[in-house]
Design a binder for these strands. Sequence first.
DNA 1: GTCTATAATTAGATAGAC
DNA 2: GTCTATCTAATTATAGAC
Lengths: 227, 227
Amino acid sequence: MSSQRPPHVDTPHAGTAPRRRQARAEETRRALLEAALTEFAEKGFEAASTRAIAHAAGAHQPQINYHFESKEELWRAAVDHLFGQLDEVFGAHTGDLDCHASARDRLAVLIRAFVHSAAELPELNRIMVREATTDSARLRWIVDRHTRPRFAEAVDAWRAAQIEGGVTPMDEAIFYYSFIGASSLVYVNAPEARLLGCDPSTPEFVSAHAEAVVRMFLPESPGPPDS
Amino acid sequence: MSSQRPPHVDTPHAGTAPRRRQARAEETRRALLEAALTEFAEKGFEAASTRAIAHAAGAHQPQINYHFESKEELWRAAVDHLFGQLDEVFGAHTGDLDCHASARDRLAVLIRAFVHSAAELPELNRIMVREATTDSARLRWIVDRHTRPRFAEAVDAWRAAQIEGGVTPMDEAIFYYSFIGASSLVYVNAPEARLLGCDPSTPEFVSAHAEAVVRMFLPESPGPPDS
DNA sequence: GTCTATAATTAGATAGAC
DNA sequence: GTCTATCTAATTATAGAC
């Protein structure tokens, strides 16, 4: 609704100096956002330090309160940014989603796309699991704004495939959380996985994982469509 | 190795007063441990407050440094305690694990037991996912002491079932993380699940979830053994 | 063992020079 | 817009009375 951008006077004369200053400010803002993402994902909201975020972005701590109103607003902007990235990555992986394909095949495409997205954006599921653990204003904000609509879409796709048949019968919420959990945990817990001798960052791992998740929910799967 | 218990002089005279004092200290210690569990699970190590833990336990903050050496030692004791509870709960759910049953049936029993354990002890997987996200001394400690041996056991059970046949073919690490994720996320994220209209705390939900996870990995499952 | 008081550090946010 | 300096509040850990 309300823009997170700081208010600024227009530059109708279009001088180059103000423009460059504005461009540099935009750079700072973006760097703070990216640094905030990884810091919030690794430490959680409360343990994350605005000083550390600013340092990682090559800026000073008070610039956070200048470009964003507060630590909480920075978090919100970072989460919005991250879900924007998810939509991009997810869209790139679904690509030509054939509307005339069977519900089962469409579900398989969505599952593969989500696994690849979870691998490319581990920060998203890290932040989600940190917030979803305790009821809070932040959790309600993120559920209302981002989780609930995506939950509804996933459940719709599942329901359609279940009506059509050929999928493992399962309650919708059980499907949703089993699916998200099976798809994301190894990337969320990547540092632990590495200590256990597993590197989940290779393309081969991600593809094998995606096919495994498809088979978990669509047991009679004929394999990936491009093989 | 070294006991976390504070050093104390023996009471060879077995007076009642010292014994009662000791019993009360044991109570305090235990209350601190239980309070630490939920606080660390909800907030994470760094965001958790020793003052809040002490308050929840009906004690004062310096008592933590008396009964445990530091916040870090309290965390270690809490994690040890929690894995002890896991072994108890897990053992209660596997119960009469028939050594002469097929590897596939034994795996089904282990899966059901883990889902029920995850439902009863959401704190364990909350702490795990918080620590597994970033490499740290705490992560290495918990992996060496608790995760690696259990990972090996789970992989052994999976390997045996896979050799026998009748399970969804899958790499071991992919099985492990998909299994843990599918089994635990809905309980880890229970506050979010409730906002989405799902209550994962009922016995019916847990049983249905357990059967769903069994079918995800053992597609030709004949259903629960007691039905 | 339990408690009060406090030391030492660090957090997020703000004021004001430039 | 960016920077230094600083305010207030919260943190873990410790000292010492009881």
